[in-house]
Amino acid sequence: MSKKHIAMYITGGIAVYKAAQLVRSFIKGGYEVKVAMTASAQEFVTPQTFAVLSQHEVYTDFNSKTPADFVPHIALADWTDAAVVVPATANMIGKMANGIADDFVSTALLATAAPKYVVPAMNEKMWQQAATKRNVACLRADGSEILPPVTGFLAEGYSGQGRMPEPAEIYAWVTAKLTHQQDLAGKKILVSAGPTVEAIDPVRFLSNRSSGKMGYAVAQAAADRGAEVTLISGPTALAQPTNLKMIPIRSARELQEQLEENFDANDFVIMAAAVADYHVKEVADQKIKKHGRDVVELELVANPDILAALGQKKTHQRLVGFAAETQNLLANGAKKLAEKNLDMLVLNDVSRSDIGFNAADNEVRLLRPQEEPKLIEKTSKAQIAQEILDELLKLA
């Protein structure tokens, strides 16, 4: 089996000296490591140190192109199985969150499709700034893993949260993420995600606030755990998950068609998509003009209950539904679980602004027939995805 490729991105903070030990740990652990450094990182530790440890030339903004790396930042991005940003300064976190690519490190990171593991280190005052919190939340929402800084003695001479964890802790954290238990190997999982879109005319449509983040997290987690995953997705602004089959759709009718086509071949079906309840009976061929009208009447027709139809159709499949509720959560959830013949229901409280639609975090209750609801307290959607899959395995 070939070695996994770790690209380490070193940015300019006093904790750079710890990164040298981390490179050594990865190599001792059987990984192949290549290092890229920002100009400011080179003010603390020279590239030669990392070149000796990694046994590879270090990527800097001053690299000459070689035949093997005709476009160096793309070559490194394509080579990478996992990207580790350590120490991650507030500056680099801001660049990553906003898609800024103005040096080798930020450009290579923007080109990298592999999982990203970000280890912030900075002064406590910088870590607590609203801008930093927004950028970290954005990275999490985009799928990056974040290892928060610890509280300890800082370079400024006082204690606070901002200190980079020790290399041994970082190594254990990254390798645990990379060595997912392949407990879904051999299983086929069909996931739907995102909103559906129902046309009104060539310009306007009816839709909902679903970002697709929860469904994408489930699909990626399932793929990471060895499953053969098919993701049917409505329009989102999210990056496509890796190592799975992606089927884009727009309307509820298109979603229904793709589910019916793929349903029989799968072992588990997870319906995280937010499906529109209605579509417009007559879609206008041309843009509807205002022409002084204060009221426009649209006749809406109910869409088929796709989840209920799957519940009646299932044979060997285990079927998981999602419910977005604003009141009477457990009562409404239990009713949906029974009426739609589900094996499990993931119940969301979308009345809360800190979880659910478009948020990086969520808090859900898992409902199963003849069992007490299981509460998963507020955490990242990636973590909730893992817990959903853990429960899914109990249904097999």
Rank of each mutant, 00 (worst) to 15 (best):
Y59F: 15
R368W: 07
V229C: 09
F322I: 11
L259D: 12
K289A: 04
G186M: 08
P72E: 07
Q258T: 07
A274R: 14
V275L: 09
N123D: 11
A176R: 12
A193L: 13
A97N: 00
P235Q: 15
A324Y: 04
A223L: 03
K28C: 12
V33G: 12
N63A: 07
L347S: 05
G29C: 09
L154Y: 07
E325L: 01
D361W: 08
E254L: 05
I270Q: 10
M122N: 02
V275W: 08
N332H: 11
D61R: 07
I232A: 05
A382I: 02
H316P: 08
V52T: 04
G160N: 11
H73L: 04
G12D: 13
D285W: 10
L178A: 00
F205C: 14
A323F: 09
I232W: 01
K289R: 10
E297I: 10
M126Y: 02
G12A: 09
Y17Q: 08
G212Q: 07
H279Q: 08
A155L: 09
P148Y: 10
G356E: 11
P235S: 06
E372W: 08
T196C: 11
A323M: 02
N262I: 08
L53G: 02
W173N: 01
E387M: 03
Q161I: 06
L307E: 14
I93E: 13
T379L: 15
G30M: 15
L244H: 09
V33W: 05
R163I: 04
T179G: 11
V229W: 08
L184P: 00
I376G: 04
L259P: 05
Q327I: 03
A39H: 06
T49K: 08
S210G: 03
P115R: 12
N303R: 12
L342V: 03
M246F: 13
V364I: 07
S251W: 05
G215A: 05
K378F: 10
M8Y: 04
I355P: 06
A41P: 14
K290M: 03
S64V: 14
E32D: 15
E282H: 10
K314C: 09
M214A: 04
M8F: 12
K18L: 11
K133W: 13
V218H: 00
S251P: 00
L22K: 00
T179M: 05
D361M: 02
K177N: 10
F268M: 00
Q312M: 04
A15R: 04
A272W: 00
L345V: 13
V346G: 00
I200Q: 05
K28H: 13
M96F: 08
L337K: 08
N98F: 03
E198D: 07
A130E: 15
T196A: 12
V301L: 14
Y59I: 08
L76F: 14
I93H: 14
I74P: 11
